[in-house]
Design a protein around this nucleic acid. Structure first.
Lengths: 227, 227
DNA sequence: CCAGATATCGAGCAAATACTCATGTTTGGA
DNA sequence: TCCAAACATGAGTATTTGCTCGATATCTGG
């Protein structure tokens, strides 16, 4: 093993995990796709420590060399997968909330919007809980601390904007802090609800509880009265 | 490397990480202590992947062989450290809340008790944030899923008892679910507040916010009015 | 249809590292 | 004082694995 990748204790200024080569032809784009898919499969089956590049290549029906044409090292595979996941969450959020202050403003109250968002994210996570477990709980993220990618920042900003739209209903004073609490809470609890052993109830009930938690903090109101 | 330790894909029934030999003389107890201390230091400096048993032994001023006298494999070191941390949290909790239904019952309201607990845990975590980061976010926990040790269960039970004591003030119906929400939220947000980049505010403010979040969920009341 | 660009291949190297075991040292009770 | 059990040692081994590189194949613009 060549220590270049283990930058934690070596390089003070870690290089960004950029693809070594950009796939131009459709052939190579399919190859990259196959590699990522295989990575997800192997990761799901064997966890982070059980995953190695040779195996990923084999499962993708590709040679190791090809993997290293497009990914500078093993962790870049995971980073790419994580980024893809973040993008999916971002997309799900936009679908649930709409873009901020777009035409035809969303007139629902804050609680309803939160419920949509939590529902959407829960659903997205239930697709591959074990993969998310590995990505969130096993991946070291040496060089690229999670929650710092542009996509993650986009998510934070959208939440911030949501609180801003509803600032009249929102009790906490510091919007920075309120955003932080929101994002951390949603991510943690959604992951905890979905990955084994999971919440001690149905996914719907867990979603309800998360919404109650968030709405209670933001609006200082008891959970919604039953109809 | 011998595959015995990597049980994820191999052994269906992983053996418990019991010490290979129990230290009887004070000499060996000191040795075990030195090993754990060194593990914590190395883990803090170099992260999970950068930590190896040879280095730990060297840093502890001990030979590798001695490490393997008392710990069956590398992960057992981490597990021991994690268990020790859980025990500290348990102790801090007992100090903050007292044992349930003990003589001289604690007459404070739920919110005050929550505030004590959050304060105590925050303080305990601020001692070695980087170590906690590694323990919580890098350690794979192959065989012993976190939050399943007897100590962790003890923590859950105590929280459950707390909610029970105050069941008249508590709004959520399902106590199982409420306990789960509490524990998950506290652990996640306290970790997030302490480990870099941390909360966008002082530790005190973060603590306040966490208490607001929990109290809002449990009691359905707005944050405490300023005096 | 060819020349350069792009893509793929995979045997094998170099390094890392978890763990063993044969041997030596210390301890504490009888 | 003596001895058996407990303790400590650390060079060495067996294995894993991230990654390279020179050879080969395929594509595409002119």
């Amino acid at each position: 093993m060549i220590p270049v990748a283990n930058s934690r204790s070596d390089s003070p200024m870690p290089s960004l995990p950029q693809p070594r080569r950009i796939p131009r032809q459709s052939r190579s784009r399919a190859l990259v796709e196959a590699i990522l898919e295989a990575t997800a499969r192997v990761l799901t089956e064997r966890g982070y420590a059980g995953t190695n590049t040779n195996l990923v290549a084999e499962r993708a029906g590709v040679s190791v060399g090809s993997v290293y044409q497009y990914f500078p090292n093993k962790d870049a595979l995971l980073t790419a997968l994580h980024e893809r996941h973040a993008a999916e969450m971002h997309a799900a959020m936009e679908r649930a909330l709409g873009s901020p202050s777009a035409a035809g403003a969303d007139t629902r109250d804050l609680r309803s919007k939160l419920a949509s968002l939590v529902q959407a994210w829960l659903a997205a996570h239930r697709v591959a809980p074990e993969l998310h477990r590995v990505l969130e709980k096993e991946f070291p993220f040496f060089d690229a601390p999670a929650d710092q990618s542009p996509t993650d920042q986009g998510i934070r900003q959208r939440i911030r904007a949501l609180l801003d739209e509803h600032r009249s209903e929102v009790v906490p004073q510091d919007p920075e802090l309120a955003t932080w609490v929101m994002v951390q809470t949603m991510e943690s609890l959604i992951h905890a609800a979905v990955i084994p052993p999971g919440a001690p109830c149905s996914a719907e009930a867990a979603g309800q509880a998360i919404v109650d938690l968030l709405a209670g903090y933001l609006c200082g109101q008891a959970r919604r009265a039953l109809p």
